[in-house]
């Protein structure tokens, strides 16, 4: 069973529906207690960085996540804002502290003049490092993005996928049990559902 974190920011219904369609048992956790029994934790998110951190904190998730994911090694999947919140600091509507699990900053996507921001739509992600998340997808796949900010990790070795929108930016990251995508797998048809299936397939079976 996996837990999807409800912190008032998510398109969590879509994420829940995607796992259901894949036959993977998922629950929506509206408080930290809901994370304890789960084999893996998903942090989805549509929204602004500061509100996201504030809501995670107010609902008591941060301490439990530190315990389960950082100390306990429980598999974690961040989606969109759920990737950005892994950074140390974010600059959307002022400066805010992030979770800091993947040291780096979340900046506005700066692209050549002719390109429009937010970056909305289907774009190719090149898989720059082998990752079980992308099993069966080849060297690159088109996923759906919708965002104005990007994570710039301090250590480029955590980057597993790169997307080109006039400039290359971080499309996916992994550090041990913590992985995340800037794109929305739950909104990316077959390629996206494959990512969610791959992530769930690697979870401990006993749970």
């Amino acid at each position: 069973m996996i837990a999807i974190i409800d912190y008032g920011m998510g398109n969590l219904r879509s994420v829940f529906n995607a796992f259901q369609a894949l036959g993977i048992e998922a629950v929506i956790a509206d408080g930290p207690a809901g994370l304890r029994e789960a084999a893996g934790v998903v942090l989805p998110g549509v929204g602004a960085f500061g509100d996201g951190m504030r809501n995670l904190c107010e609902r008591g998730f941060i301490e439990e996540l530190e315990k389960q994911v950082v100390a306990g090694g429980k598999p974690f999947l961040g989606l969109c804002l759920g990737l950005q919140l892994l950074g140390t600091r974010g600059f959307e509507h002022g400066e805010n502290a992030g979770l800091g699990w993947i040291p780096g900053v979340v900046n506005r996507l700066v692209v050549p003049d002719a390109l429009r921001v937010p970056h909305i739509g289907w774009n190719d992600t090149r898989f720059v490092k082998p990752d079980a998340l992308f099993d069966g997808l080849g060297a690159a796949a088109a996923f759906y993005f919708v965002h104005s900010f990007v994570l710039v990790p301090d250590d480029p070795a955590v980057i597993t996928g790169v997307c080109d929108y006039g400039v290359d930016f971080t499309a996916s990251v992994r550090r041990d049990n913590i992985c995340a995508t800037q794109f929305h797998p739950e909104k990316s048809h077959k390629a996206g559902l494959a990512v969610l299936r791959n992530w769930a397939a690697a979870l401990p079976k006993s749970c």
């Binding site: 929204g47 602004a48 804002l81 909305i120 919708v146 965002h147």
Partner: peptide
Amino acid sequence: GAQVFGSQA
């Protein structure tokens, strides 16, 4: 709306 959900939404 943009402040709560992000401009992209």
